[in-house]
């Protein structure tokens, strides 16, 4: 893509330590495998200037963001094609009932690093967002296998036989707005709970709280069951 290129940068030890941290998100474990750690240590990339952060405790679990994502990118609605993935374990206890999985725009993007064709790239023209150029993608799934997060954030599109990932709505043929840096993001717009937000500074990489944060405006306590209340352990119902 014009204006996009890989940018070599010396990798600092600090970057490596931060980038290889282990995070826990709603029961999902994020970790780098030894092999990818080695790969990551070889070179580095400019930081993205935009990150999608979320508030899993206030997510409404409506999947509106997923529907909006697939709609503006693919022109059809699908949970499987969405680049943001919400999972609801409807019978689990709050707040573990919802996990939110977004592309973290990794400081050391192994999807970019390991892509054999340059399809996965850092887009300098788009604020260094980590993107996949569909024209260059050969469907080898290397980016999917390389993604260090569980579940992987690169998405396989079985219709096109290519990988996709969150591009901050840069390439959205079915969106009447400008996406990308400084533009709109369909998922953020669709969220009825103010549980998604674009930030420009690199979130903390040491644990999941960098991405999963309270995005609600301050307000009065909502009573014993309102926001901020500590949920009590659910007791099992009587055996029928």
């Amino acid at each position: 893509m014009a204006g996009d290129k890989k940018v070599d940068k010396k990798f600092s030890r600090r970057d490596f330590v931060v980038g290889s941290g282990t995070a826990i998100a709603g029961g999902a474990i994020t970790a780098l495998s030894p092999a990818t750690q080695v790969a990551a240590a070889a070179e580095s990339y400019p930081l993205s200037t935009a990150y999608l952060v979320y508030d899993s405790k206030h997510c409404a679990g409506c999947y509106g963001c997923m529907i909006a994502c697939s709609l503006v990118h693919e022109g059809e609605v699908s949970l499987s094609l969405s680049r943001i993935q919400i999972h609801r374990a409807v019978l689990a206890e709050y707040p573990l009932d919802i996990s939110i999985n977004v592309c973290r725009q990794c400081p050391e993007p192994l999807c970019v690093k390991n892509c054999p064709t340059g399809a996965a790239h850092v887009s300098a023209a788009n604020g260094n967002i980590r993107m996949i150029d569909a024209e260059k993608c050969i469907g080898c799934e290397t980016c999917i296998k390389s993604c260090p997060h569980i579940p992987h954030r690169t998405i396989w599109n079985p219709q096109t036989k290519k990988s996709t990932k969150c591009d901050m709505c840069v390439n959205t043929p079915y969106y009447n707005k400008k996406g990308g840096i400084g533009g709109s993001q369909a998922c953020v717009e669709a969220c009825p709970a103010n549980a998604l937000k674009i930030v420009n500074e690199l979130p903390s990489q040491t644990d999941i709280s960098g991405y999963d944060r309270n995005l609600q405006p301050p307000r009065k306590p909502g009573g014993p069951f309102g926001p901020g209340a500590k949920p009590k352990a659910a007791k099992p119902a009587p055996k029928a």
């Binding site: 409404a60 409506c62 509106g64 909502g222």
Partner: peptide, 14 residues
């Protein structure tokens, strides 16, 4: 309303 987060039909949230 504003008292608690909630969820129901896909895409609703209204």
């Amino acid at each position: 309303g504003g008292q608690s987060v909630s969820s129901c039909c896909v895409g609703c949230g209204a």
